[in-house]
Nucleic acid binder design. Structure first.
Lengths: 340, 340
DNA sequence: ATGAAAGCGCTAACAG
DNA sequence: CTGTTAGCGCTTTCAT
């Protein structure tokens, strides 16, 4: 049995209250007794049981994290930022990934609540009328969304402007002379940001008077691109000359699949991704993409959350700036190139 | 104030014991009372407080995870496997990354112990005489190492054979005709597996009668390769023709830096990485590397740990198979190529 | 400065 | 089948 505060008290010949005071650095303990207690603690190799403390104080110094996947560096980087900030403020993290299963969100949050986390940072499939979020609200547990689209300021969120950035991608492609555009995305149902990016992308294109781009929806986990892509490029007259991918991981796979189809990027077709994962800059061709500040997003979200928890001022909505990185994977439209 | 078991009991006109029985699916409750209680629970929107239960049962259903970094997909994948297995067994995860700061290991484990996790999965800088590990042993907390070198079966570990795989890389390079070899690695002090890989690499080379390869140690977080690499290739007579990188992320950066130096991989120099991160297969050139089954490692480690916790049989040491992937980044030695 | 005791939310004998 | 009660380990008044 692990030693408890009682064992320490007995060994040091003091009351448990005094031991508690020593543990909690209370100033109101005589130097002599403090030393006595510290020696007993040392001797018994005593570590305070946080459960007892937490139950007593109703204050766990822990935060929950719920994200769709760790396999995407974008989320891993955010968790890294969360970890850094939480650690520096003395908070512990309880972590779950849902693997893009929306139903798991509720279960994850329920579990986190049972463990009495003081707040939760999450990315959900869809914040609108979301069960997990409703539960959080009902229980008055502070939370902040990351990555999710900022919807009507309904929820505290730290994110980027997905609509605007999707539009930026479209504009960039149009500027390069592309007209036959397409977007390929993970399940829209599993990602409100993908939907927002699509919206910005499509709106910008149609506003410019061009036809609505082709939208291709694929599975988040294992898209079978070798099956999906060829038909799209079967007819050279309708085949898109540029492809916007809803995330970098997908873009990288797409470039690979196009290669297997004999299509060269960017010579035959341009590809732009989204996320700005570090590795994109090392690829060949280097990946054109929208960089979101993932690490910072996690960091800022944690700051906001902790400020909220501690009753300090915080911003309900934080939109971090994104950067469109011009890589080699997006170039001028093939026909124009030929005319040069 | 969140409702407690007492509130539910009062509303349902039963004792707290009965409520507890309902919550815990005990069969010994009459159908009628069960329904009464469930309605009260529903009505009050009651969620059991795990702290109370945990304190009472001395059983938290939670596991700790301590890894060096989430920025490396290798660890993210392992955590993904851990998460999957833990979730399916009803365990919650408490997570910390140390960012390669060895001193943080002890602090992380101490904190996890305070929260009474039932077991811990970790990757440490050096398992030999490791403070965090000693603490775990002293407190009799089950744990299992992942990635770490299996050292004298001192610690339960799920890993690959780093020495053998390092040797495999050397052999492959020798087979390709390379003789002037070098290894570039993150701080050896922060990674026992890097040391093991080096050992296998060096031993195989010297055993084959070749000179000891050049060993270059760089920072794990931000190696300044543009500074470090050029001098090594200044003299074409001593410059290595093949480079073994201790991990894929490093290998990718190295290939980038070599490119900026005007050196082409694999034409001018071969590069082999280590880890087998998914993206390596999509690079150009595709990355030659040693694939470790990261997801599975996390999965198996969690299985082992839970089996241990639940008093079932488990294997103290599990060596998972690795695969050397032949990618385009490693080719035959330049001089040989010229002679063709 | 220190101790006694109540209580945090829940479980687990033990009765009945 | 259900209720009573004694903790689990710790904090926190309230006395002393």
């Amino acid at each position: 049995m692990a030693p408890t505060i009682k064992h320490v008290a007995k060994l040091a010949n003091v009351s448990v209250a005094t031991v508690s005071r020593v543990i909690n650095q209370s100033k109101k303990v005589k130097q002599a007794t403090r030393i006595k207690v510290e020696q007993a603690i040392e001797q018994l190799n005593f570590t305070p049981n946080a459960l007892g403390r937490n139950l007593s104080t109703a204050h766990t110094k822990s935060l929950g994290v719920v994200i769709p996947s760790l396999s995407n560096p974008v989320f891993a980087d955010a968790v890294s930022g969360i970890n850094q900030q939480a650690k520096s403020r003395g908070y512990t993290l309880m972590f779950t990934s849902t693997d893009y299963v929306a139903q798991d969100e509720l279960q994850a949050v329920t579990s986190l609540l049972a463990y009495q986390v003081e707040g939760i940072i999450l990315t959900v499939a869809n914040p609108i009328d979301n069960q997990a979020l409703n539960l959080l609200i009902k229980n008055k547990i502070p939370y902040v969304l990351i990555y999710n689209q900022a919807s009507d300021a309904q929820h505290p969120v730290v994110t980027i402007d997905n609509i605007n950035s999707g539009g930026g991608v479209a504009q960039k492609l149009l500027d390069l002379g592309h007209i036959k555009l397409a977007m390929i995305s993970g399940n829209f149902a599993a990602s409100d940001r993908a939907r927002a990016r699509k919206q910005g992308f499509v709106d910008t294109i149609t506003s410019a008077g061009h036809p609505t781009p082709l939208i291709i929806e694929v599975d988040f986990i294992e898209p079978d691109l070798d099956e999906i892509l060829p038909p799209i490029f079967a007819d050279p007259f309708t085949a898109p000359t540029a492809l916007f991918c809803s995330n970098d991981l997908l873009a990288i796979s797409v470039i690979g699949a196009l290669g297997r189809m004999g299509l060269n990027v960017p010579h035959d077709i341009s590809v732009i991704g989204f996320d700005g994962i570090a590795i994109g800059a090392h690829l060949h061709p280097t990946l054109s993409t929208v960089i979101q500040p993932s690490h910072k997003m996690g960091l800022v979200a944690t700051q906001q959350l902790l400020d909220n928890i501690n009753g300090q001022d915080y911003h309900k909505t934080v939109i971090l700036p994104h950067i469109i990185r011009t890589g080699e994977s997006a170039g001028i439209v093939p026909s124009v190139q030929i005319n040069l």
